[in-house]
């Protein structure tokens, strides 16, 4: 349930930026989260509904999440491969486990809309 903390940090950061720009109502927030980060969309939405209650600037706001898949790149042969999870992370071409994460570890606020 670290989703609660993630949403709390998101609201703090967006509210801070919005205040600096004179924005009083946030309409939507766009997040990008990778499959590796375990931020479950339904729990993020539940936390968002609860945490926005006492913050008028977010009264009409919706949370939009873009979830990115796990894509790894073999450091040995350069092959890029996609994984459902981390259970068997060997390179399908050369069979070794020495990779860099190309996608799937994102966790950032892309943008928000407000007026």
């Amino acid at each position: 349930m670290h989703e609660t903390s993630l949403v709390q940090f998101t609201l703090n950061a967006v509210e801070h930026r919005a205040a600096g720009l004179g924005i009083t109502r946030v309409k939507s927030i766009q997040l990008v989260t990778g499959e590796l980060r375990g931020a479950l969309p339904n729990l993020m939405q539940a936390a968002f509904r609860t945490l926005k209650r006492n913050r008028p600037i977010f009264e009409d706001a919706v949370l939009e999440m873009k979830v990115t898949p796990v894509i790894l790149k073999c450091r040995d042969c350069g092959t890029e491969y996609q994984k459902e999870d981390f259970h068997d992370v060997r390179c399908p071409k050369c069979g070794i486990t020495n990779f860099e994460i190309i996608s799937g570890s994102e966790l950032y606020i892309e943008s928000f809309e407000g007026e």
Partner: peptide, 14 residues
């Protein structure tokens, strides 16, 4: 108005 942030969610903690 759309505002692009590109900010790590955990930045406050970090």
């Amino acid at each position: 108005m759309k505002v692009y942030m590109e900010q790590d969610i955990l930045q406050e903690n970090d």
